[in-house]
Amino acid sequence: MEQTFTILIDERWCKGCKLCYIHCPTQALRIAERFSPRGIHPPELALVERCNGCRLCELLCPDFAITVSEEVAVHG
């Protein structure tokens, strides 16, 4: 079964430094067009199928703003 992952971004804490976007080994992230309440462009998961859940973005985020979690597949 293919595993899929979701990336939760805490927009209160994200400063928009783009470190996650720069370091993502599979280039699964992109910088959103919209603004967050802090007035920056937050990162978002663009290509869900490319994310392999390595958690590098979560470990590298200087502001504890990213959490990678495994998505539970729904059968039926």
């Binding site: 805490d10 958690r55 470990l59 504890f64 703003a65 959490t67 990678v68 979690s69």
Partner: peptide, 9 residues
């Protein structure tokens, strides 16, 4: 096996 950033903070 690190905790998630949300748990850690």
């Amino acid at each position: 096996k690190p905790k998630t950033a949300a748990e850690l903070r």
